[in-house]
Design a protein around this nucleic acid. Structure first.
Lengths: 189, 189
DNA sequence: GTTGTCTATGGACAAATGTCCTTTTTTCTG
DNA sequence: CAGAAAAAAGGACATTTGTCCATAGACAAC
């Protein structure tokens, strides 16, 4: 459920170390802080050094949809890399977060110059695509208890780390339905 | 609902014309033919020259999920570009389909040599990501009639082109529910 | 024409999920 | 510590959606 990208993490750590070309800057956010805001322009691409964030947006009918939880090595802001469109989601720090930040222009230049980064970036996009596809289909074709089971098996401490409302938004269900499902799981007579 | 990619289409047409470097081969499939099959290895990347395909897979509980309908200029097979994993979905011709085909190795070389293609490819991946995110959230947070309305407004001749069962699978609902929703739309007293 | 297969349509009922509210528990703040 | 605010839990009911049929039309094969 919380996405990671070790390969990208290691490589960014390597090329951003002191003494190397300094395209990246470091920045930190406290829990609850908004790193990107839906509807506002994006000027940089970010890679997570530590901590984790939730990425979500609101729909016209008042709902909230959680795109993803991102942890170490995950990248965001890339959707707006190639044009001037505003961010389509809000990225909010959950735990204390440290980030690598790089301007869109610099990142584009790096993609041209650094073949390995280029490859890693493409790989990252493909992995995101694949993950989204499997999540989307799973959510559509399974019942709430099944979805919960899957989540629990992938992240047993789920409910201690992430608020119930967020879990519900992630699964695209109501809080009521989530509670019912949790009760059903443990409450076998 | 049927995805297109004019920019990529134009560029591939340009670099694959007779006389240019011949990395691409042409191939055609009749309606109903399987271009890729879930679980089987993928050796090439494909770009659609004409016609359209459906891209779907089966879940362990017997359901079918339609990833996408692809038309002119859309690319597929790219998910398996960087590793040896088997195709995670089946790509089936709906109308007669003509394709550009290029081996994974050649495509990777081209991505290194041809900066413009590299950029276009990244753009294609980003566009797919964005589209998937919006589709996923819309499907999760809206009722069946709302989803149908949206589809109808984007593609009025929908039901004449695509079988009802496919539409239902695309929306992640049952055929019964689809019929009910259609009836509800037109059958206002 | 007859049979068989596929698609479309919809009735009747069951099950899943959402809506609306109330109560309890936890966390935060002064 | 008191009080307010947020998160968790769940009752009762309405609505939506799925399941399981049954029927009817279109088309192909023989």
């Amino acid at each position: 459920m919380i996405r990671h990208n070790k390969e990208l993490f290691d490589y960014i750590a390597e090329i951003s170390r002191p003494g190397a070309l300094q395209h990246f800057t470091a920045c930190s956010f406290a829990p609850g802080a908004h790193i990107l805001t839906e509807g506002k322009k994006v000027f940089s691409v970010y890679i997570i050094k530590s901590g984790f964030v939730k990425c979500y947006f609101h729909t016209e009918n008042g709902g909230t949809f959680i795109q993803e939880f991102f942890g170490e090595g995950e990248l965001f802001g890339e959707i707006e890399l190639l044009d001037d469109t505003a961010s389509y989601c809000t990225v909010e720090a959950i735990a204390q977060v440290d980030l690598y930040k790089i301007s869109k222009q610099d990142f584009l230049l790096l993609l041209e110059k650094d073949e390995k980064l280029n490859r890693l970036f493409i790989k990252t996009l493909i992995t995101k695509l694949k993950y989204k596809a499997s999540r989307h289909s799973y959510n559509q074709l399974h019942t709430i208890p099944e979805k919960l089971d899957r989540l629990k098996s992938r992240m047993p401490d789920l409910t201690e780390v992430i608020p119930k409302q967020d879990i519900a938004d992630y699964l695209g269900i109501t809080l009521r339905a989530l509670n019912r499902a949790i009760k059903g799981m443990t409450g076998a007579v």
